[in-house]
């Protein structure tokens, strides 16, 4: 399975993401610049954190119009797994691949620390290696992670089990219903504020994020590799 790590001007978690895939997970990964015309050769797409285009206008608002995003939409329609972390989540929201929007953190502060999450739905291609309701520690690092959507959208998210991760300790940013990560209706696009790629090695404080990447690969192999 081959992953694309999309790099926008201002992405700054791309190297962590690449490291997580290549060195910790042991899968193939390549950096892909934002003006790339095709993602056909990749099986999974990763949108890393950072400050694409300096967060000008709104986080993710400019990146959403880059060339590669047309390809990301195509890949989403084709059912490929797409993971957006932090700024990557914001880009997915701006692109309309996930519903809702981000507000500034309730405290107005940039928050950077490990937080406790609960796996609310393990029946996704991103979370099947976790236990139902498993509590995990993953770091966050954001100033705008205060998830918002209207009531109707929230009802749909609940009905379709699209809320995948919630903050189970103190809600760090004020997000609606403690939401930390959601998938699209089809289940192949995940956006999350916490950084699983920063939690892939016990030496660096924890490896709870690794199961997320392992889930993607496991599910992909089961679907695409004979005798997997």
């Amino acid at each position: 399975m081959k992953f694309a790590v999309i790099v926008f001007p201002g992405s700054n978690c791309d190297i962590d993401m690449f490291h997580a895939i290549k060195d910790e997970l042991g899968a193939e990964a390549e950096y892909v610049w934002h003006d790339t015309e095709s993602l056909d050769e990749f099986d999974g797409i990763l949108l890393p954190g950072g400050f694409s285009y300096g967060d000008y206008l709104r986080s993710g608002a400019i990146a959403r119009f880059s060339n590669v995003m047309k390809e990301v939409v195509k890949a989403a329609e084709a059912g490929k797994p797409i993971l957006g972390v932090c700024n990557g989540f914001q880009v997915l929201l701006e692109a309309g691949l996930l519903p809702g929007a981000m507000r500034r953190n309730e405290t107005l502060k940039f928050i950077c620390r490990p937080v406790q999450l609960k796996v609310e739905n393990r029946e996704t291609m991103f979370t099947s290696s976790y236990q139902e309701q498993e509590e995990i520690m993953i770091p966050i690092a954001h100033g705008e992670g205060n998830y918002y959507c209207d009531e109707q959208t929230l009802a749909q998210l609940k009905e379709n089990k699209q809320i995948v991760f919630t903050y189970s300790g103190t809600n760090p940013n004020g997000s609606l219903e403690d939401i930390a990560g959601i998938v699209n209706k089809k289940g192949n696009v995940l956006g999350m504020m916490p950084h699983p790629e920063r939690a892939v090695d016990e030496l660096l404080g924890g490896a709870d994020g690794l199961k997320l990447f392992q889930s993607i690969v496991k599910n992909w192999r089961e679907a695409h590799v004979v005798n997997a």
């Binding site: 206008l57 608002a61 119009f65 929201l93 929007a101 918002y148 959507c149």
Partner: peptide, 8 residues
């Protein structure tokens, strides 16, 4: 399309 995010 761009200047405002009409969700919020």
């Amino acid at each position: 399309r761009l200047l405002a995010n009409v969700v919020i």
